[in-house]
């Protein structure tokens, strides 16, 4: 039960973040919103890290530099997310975002790109994606 609450809250917060970013963008600009929210998030995470002191920094040296910079994608993600929400509304924007997200993950998992454990995708994944697309068509038309 506790796990359900955390997962439910986590999803809610992800969308809330998009909506809050959109509101902040309208007030001070999109890049300003992205910079400020990432900066304050970074500081908060850093403070927590100093308290929990988990792990060591040596581990990071074993990670390919490309993967270390993955966080930088957030700049484009936030900009795109905010712009999509402004133009299409939250529900449609998040629906399309999730379809793109699951589709690309599906493709990467299937091909084993970036050294991920290759997974065979079967019928349920195709049916799931088709249902998601059908749902979007219903939302919109």
């Amino acid at each position: 039960m506790k796990g359900w609450i955390f997962a439910f809250l986590g999803g809610t917060l992800i969308t809330l973040q998009g909506v809050a970013n959109t509101r902040i963008s309208e007030a001070i600009g999109t890049w300003q919103a992205a910079t400020i929210t990432q900066m304050t998030g970074f500081i908060t995470a850093l403070v927590i890290l100093l308290f929990v002191r988990g792990g060591n920094l040596k581990g990071l040296k074993q990670v390919k530099p490309l993967y270390l910079t993955g966080g930088a994608l957030a700049a484009v993600i936030i900009y795109s997310n905010v712009t999509a929400i402004r133009l299409t509304g939250v529900t449609l924007a998040i629906s399309i975002l999730l379809i793109a997200q699951l589709s690309l993950t599906f493709l990467i998992d299937g091909k084993g790109w970036f050294g991920v454990v290759r997974k065979r995708m079967r019928l349920p994944q195709f049916i799931g994606l088709a249902m998601m697309i059908a749902g979007v068509l219903i939302l919109r038309f």
């Binding site: 966080g71 997200q101 690309l104």
Partner: peptide, 17 residues
């Protein structure tokens, strides 16, 4: 809007990996 939503979703997928 759809274009940006697709872009965001694709990058979220990459970032997660």
């Amino acid at each position: 809007g759809l274009f940006f939503a697709v872009l965001a979703g694709s990058l979220v997928s990459l970032q997660n990996i």
